[in-house]
Computed example of a mutant assay.
Amino acid sequence: MLAVRQLAYKVNDLEAAAAAHHRAFGSGPFFVLRHVALASSQHRGIEQPFDHSSAYGQWGSVMVELVVQHNAEPSALHEMFPHGSGTEGLHHAALFVDDLEASIARFEREGAPLEQLSVTAGGTAFAFVDTRASLGHMLELYEPTPQLTGFYAMIAKAAEEWDGKELIRELG
């Protein structure tokens, strides 16, 4: 079974979105990583800059990511939310997969093409496949490396121990 590990929303302002999500759902705290460092990023097979910042928090048993893209270049985020439109909403659900390449190929065979493949400076690869026709949003796929699962565990533990203070916490 491919369980949803994260829901991610395109937002215009990380801090305002985190405060609103917390008020509505009790989520948090949110850990902000500004200008996520990438080693590479390809949109539809073409190398493109993907300058984005994200805030990560816990929403019950699921991580929530709030993401802002700073640059105007094409990306999976801009496929759903064109640069400058100001629109916000659910962009993707994230899944852990055993084999990223095989999973990308599987989704492509099932009519969900690869939109973007990026690799963080730390070596974590993530892929957005276009499942808008069937799900109304994209899926993000990545392999559950110790670094990634440790990050998820850190966010979940912070939520368990949270006293409701310091909603926004900077990473990096």
Rank of each mutant, 00 (worst) to 15 (best):
V36M: 02
A37C: 12
L38S: 07
L38D: 07
A39W: 05
A39R: 10
S40T: 13
Q42S: 10
G45K: 09
E47H: 12
E47T: 07
E47S: 15
P49L: 04
P49W: 06
F50Y: 09
D51K: 13
D51G: 04
S53E: 03
S53I: 06
S53P: 04
S54Y: 13
S54E: 15
Q58P: 00
W59M: 09
W59P: 04
G60S: 00
V62H: 06
V62Q: 08
M63N: 07
V64D: 03
L66Y: 02
V68F: 04
V68H: 11
Q69G: 01
Q69I: 03
Q69F: 01
N71H: 15
E73M: 05
E73P: 00
P74E: 05
P74Y: 02
S75M: 14
E79M: 12
E79D: 10
M80R: 11
M80V: 14
G84T: 04
S85R: 04
G86H: 05
T87C: 07
E88M: 08
G89W: 04
L90Q: 13
L90I: 14
L90W: 09
A93N: 08
A93Y: 03
L95P: 08
L95V: 06
L95F: 15
L95Q: 09
V97R: 08
D98Q: 11
D99K: 01
L100K: 04
L100W: 10
L100E: 08
E101T: 12
E101Y: 10
E101V: 08
S103W: 05
A105C: 13
F107P: 00
E108T: 06
E108Q: 15
R109H: 07
R109V: 07
E110W: 06
E110T: 03
G111K: 11
A112Y: 00
P113S: 00
P113Q: 00
L114W: 13
E115R: 13
Q116V: 04
Q116C: 12
L117M: 11
S118A: 11
A121Q: 07
G122E: 10
G123F: 07
G123A: 14
T124I: 15
A125C: 07
A125R: 12
F128S: 12
F128T: 06
V129L: 01
V129F: 01
D130H: 02
R132T: 11
R132V: 06
H137F: 08
M138G: 05
L141D: 13
L141E: 09
E143R: 13
P144N: 01
P144Y: 01
P146G: 11
P146T: 04
L148D: 05
L148E: 05
T149W: 11
